[in-house]
Design a protein around this nucleic acid. Structure first.
Length: 582
DNA sequence: TTAGGGTTAG
């Protein structure tokens, strides 16, 4: 009899499990449990709850838990874990509150899940409160809870607090290290992330795939190719399997560090790529201005049966915009909606405005902007339109658009600089002065531009007019000579974008010592013929530097690759890969 | 029979 009973229970369990993540089937299984009288079984209820979370139905999960008179510790923990894992963070916190009200003590399992929920919604106040509960209930030395706290503080923009928790850990497994590396990387502290990675190598802990994914993101942020290549070597040496996550990170890293050829090599070495990998490769070509190659990969992707998603279309449209492929871009936008049913998002609209605007179709671009719904008129749309007006020197639309940009983002100093430039180009110097006045009144300062260049595995940082480098005098002298040679070859400084309140001679001086020029001069001084210079700039490259680098590539016979805020520029033999679409 | 931490594309 006992065996039969056990067998019957098992069949019920099987019925719940086989319903899987399908809400309808779970509800049928639930009904069956009620009919057979098995609905009081805690194990079956627990399974039902976790599966309904997995099925994405938090409403059904809530109904189920309400039907349980006295949920026990096991049930709460399962519920808290599942709701947190499947992204129902707010519910996780509510379930946790209910658990405390029921006077059921949380465990380390409870805390890891609740802390993850707080991390996912970056709820600093709540997470800090939960941290205090961790002390009260005595789980402060639990390594899982500590790792979760590191991630929580990092995701709540408190990397220093994350580091404090990390430093206080008596034992650190690879997950704890990974939490700290990705925590730094996500807060824009790429150098710190690489430092932590280096520290792991002093321990006996072996890096895993996630370690490399995070540290590769840090390399991408820095744009440091030598660092990225070194991590690549570490991956090969570690013998770790090249999974699709790792391959995607490598493709990204090589693209964002300026070696799209290497990115392609990694991409080609993977047989079964998913949409993320294909999108990364297309994005890589796009940011380098290789629109034709981007479109070719996009075509092959579709031929392979990999279905493009919303992000894929953003990178494809962006590639078209940066390569002047307007007709292709229009066609892609049409198929996106018709064939793939992707609803255009704000990002797609920005790409379309950017593409039409860069292509000189300013009226069409402006018509497109005016056709958008009010909620779609985000600052990025206006900024794209403004960039186009500046590029094609259309001051009438430009000034109008600039006013919208300021209204949309009154705290962004970059917008005032754009507006000021627009007025200056239109010859309205009175307006230039008044914009500057507003900036001063509002306490807004221009973002400081800086450039980095890697030479002999070391990274050097330059900012405009800075004289901190020990070889400053040599660099400035070298640059003066270089610019003189460029002038002989036909270079004329693009003065109108320099600071407008200074005299012409000073304006040229200010332009001459822009951070990217200092970095290039230093690179030329320190490297031999044939070495490609790779410079990373935090802002967009200025128009004058862009013009100067074309001449420098001729007079020095060097290739210069500059990564600016939005894309790459390859200067070779007097021209730039962006074809001045920038 | 039910439950734990980190990572990927613009």
């Amino acid at each position: 009899m006992e065996g039969e009973k056990g067998g019957r229970k098992s069949a019920e369990y099987e019925a719940v499990v086989s319903a899987g993540r399908h809400l309808k089937r779970l509800q049928q299984a639930h009904a069956h449990l009620v009919v057979t009288g098995c609905y009081r079984s805690r194990a079956l209820l627990t399974k039902l709850l976790t599966l309904s979370c997995a099925a994405g139905s938090i409403a059904y999960t809530r109904r189920l838990i309400r039907s349980v008179a006295d949920p026990d510790s096991f049930l709460f923990n399962s519920l808290i874990n599942a709701s947190s894992k499947f992204g129902f963070s707010h519910d996780t916190i509510l379930f946790y509150r209910r658990m405390l009200h029921s006077r059921i003590a949380p465990s380390s399992y409870t805390f890891t899940s609740v802390i993850k929920a707080c991390a996912d919604i970056s709820h600093l106040r709540l997470g800090t409160l939960v941290h205090s509960h961790v002390f009260v209930f005595g789980y402060v030395s639990d390594s899982f809870v500590q790792a979760a706290l590191v991630t929580f503080y990092a995701k709540s923009c408190k990397p220093r607090v994350a580091r404090k928790v990390f430093d206080e850990m008596p034992q650190r497994n690879i997950v704890a290290w990974n939490s700290m590396i990705s925590g730094y990387e996500q807060n824009g502290l790429a150098r710190e992330a690489v430092e932590v990675f280096n520290k792991i190598r002093e321990t006996k802990v072996e890096p895993d795939s996630a370690t490399f994914v995070s540290v590769l993101s840090a390399c991408s942020q820095l744009g440091s190719l030598h660092l990225g290549c070194w991590i690549h070597e570490c991956i090969v040496e570690s013998g770790i399997t090249m999974d699709v996550f790792l391959a995607t990170s490598l493709v990204n890293m090589f693209s964002r560090c300026g070696d799209v050829g290497k990115a392609r090599e990694v991409f080609d070495s993977i047989n079964e790529g998913n949409v993320v990998l294909w999108t990364a490769m297309i994005s890589g070509y796009g940011m380098h201005g290789y629109g034709v190659e981007a479109m070719e990969v996009f075509r092959r992707m579709k031929a392979r049966g990999v279905v493009p998603n919303s992000v894929t279309f953003v990178v494809v449209l962006s590639a078209c915009a940066h390569a002047g492929l307007i007709d292709e871009g229009r066609a892609v936008f049409a198929t996106m909606k018709q064939e793939y049913g992707v609803v255009p998002s704000v990002e797609h609209h920005v790409c379309m405005v950017d593409m039409l605007g860069r292509g000189g179709l300013l009226n069409e671009a402006y018509k497109y902007v005016k056709g958008l719904r009010p909620e779609e008129l985000v600052p990025a749309v206006w900024t794209a339109m403004l960039g186009a007006c500046k590029m094609h020197k259309n001051f009438d639309i430009g000034v109008e658009v600039a006013e919208h940009v300021i209204n949309a983002e009154p705290e962004n100093p970059g917008n005032y600089v754009l507006l000021s430039n627009m007025y200056a180009l239109a010859g309205r110097m009175d307006r230039v002065a008044s914009v500057r006045k507003v900036m001063i009144q509002r306490g807004l300062k221009k973002q400081v531009g800086y450039s980095t260049i890697d030479i002999d595995n070391r990274s050097y940082l330059f900012s405009m007019g800075d004289k901190f480098h020990p070889e400053t005098n040599e660099i400035y002298r070298y640059l003066d000579e270089l610019m003189w040679k460029c002038k002989v070859a036909g270079y004329a400084p693009v003065l109108e974008l320099a600071m407008h309140e200074v005299e012409e001679e000073e304006r040229e001086y200010a332009l001459r010592y822009h951070s990217e020029k200092l970095a290039v001069a230093f690179g030329l001084m320190k490297t031999g013929n044939g070495v490609i210079l790779r410079v990373v700039k935090n802002l967009r490259i200025c128009e004058d530097c862009h013009s100067a680098f074309k001449f420098i590539s001729v007079v020095t016979n060097r290739e210069i690759i500059v990564r600016d805020k939005i894309r790459f520029h390859h200067f070779r033999e007097g021209s730039c890969s962006c074809l001045d679409y920038w």
